[in-house]
Write a protein that binds this DNA or RNA. Sequence first.
DNA 1: TAGATTGTTAATCGATTAACAATC
DNA 2: TAGATTGTTAATCGATTAACAATC
Lengths: 214, 214
Amino acid sequence: MSRRISMAVIRRMPKYYRYLNDLKNEGVSKISSRKLAESMGLTASQVRQDFNCFGDFGQQGQGYDVAALHREISSILGLDEGYSVIFIGAGRLCCSLVENFGFARRGFKLLAAFDTDPAKVGREICSLPVYHVDDIGKICGRRKPDIGILAVPRAKALEGAEYLKKAKVKAVWNFTNAELGLPEDKIIVENVHLSDSLMTLCYKLNQLEDKLYG
Amino acid sequence: MSRRISMAVIRRMPKYYRYLNDLKNEGVSKISSRKLAESMGLTASQVRQDFNCFGDFGQQGQGYDVAALHREISSILGLDEGYSVIFIGAGRLCCSLVENFGFARRGFKLLAAFDTDPAKVGREICSLPVYHVDDIGKICGRRKPDIGILAVPRAKALEGAEYLKKAKVKAVWNFTNAELGLPEDKIIVENVHLSDSLMTLCYKLNQLEDKLYG
DNA sequence: TAGATTGTTAATCGATTAACAATC
DNA sequence: TAGATTGTTAATCGATTAACAATC
């Protein structure tokens, strides 16, 4: 707890969280650093170093307490805060996320979606009310949403970011490829950057082809 | 060219690519490592080290040739290979990607989508033909697709992965949260892991709240 | 007690930064 | 030539791995 946890460690946390969740569901109560490392493709040393960043969940000779560790990581990542969420863009991406991502199961509260399309405004999308973006200040006035999900086409990214500013969200989950230019000291921005992911895939694929066919 | 390029460098390439693309579109022909670093939040040293991994695009006193560098990164990442793509899952996510990601503009060839839903099979989704997954071997027999995009709900992830095996794709872009357990020495897997991204956002948000309210 | 596995220190490795000579 | 900026080497920093004493 004392030392500041490095970003390299934090980025591994969600993965630990997933694996510990699976172990919990399988009814495993203790796991050794060696076994966990093996299944995750890390070294046992690394696992121990990582877990020692935030306390004392291991027992010599026994391993780590799966449930306690799972709870602790959840708390470190802030997954129990019940953060509230709005969408900018009530299109297919919004709907796909609402249907498949499991926000409720993960403890998020979905408040509303905002769009400009008159065919959508005033209706519901996957049981989420859709409002006009012009009303965003009014609707988010009393209870400011924690997280805004930017799910619009690239061309409308900057415009959408402006609306999120008006809604006074604390963090933006950005699905557009654009750099939003929001004041990052005030608003947290997490970019999904799907194109970066696909480019990395292409790189690996290209390397493979080079290896196979010269 | 000689030394093997490290993964840390590769992961920065898509970002360079995006910035260089913007510069190209703005008509900028030369850029110094200092200016590029500044706009990207890197150090000039790092930019020069990165670019020196693959040759000689700088000119002392002048900076780097934007167009040449852009082309080179494109070639390193394998973006000019015209890779072909199929989808498993012809739902909202598939459609959202087809509509918004710009596959054609980026040089990818969309071949088909596969699903089990009789309401979708035999029709088109965003002008992409939808076939039954049972026919995947037959349809992908002659011309094997390079990339398979796994866009199904988590519960159908492993099943979907099996179909991608049958289609003999070389790489999988995995939008489910599941670990697919594919033989990674034979099939390249790039996981999108949206939940990891949202958890990282939550962590930063949680840190911010701690700072603000103790 | 003996065996297992952690917690933690020290050693290694790799990536980033700084510095400066080379050169356009 | 003088100014600017690269290419590259050396120094620093941080992250990973190895080792082992502590302890359940």
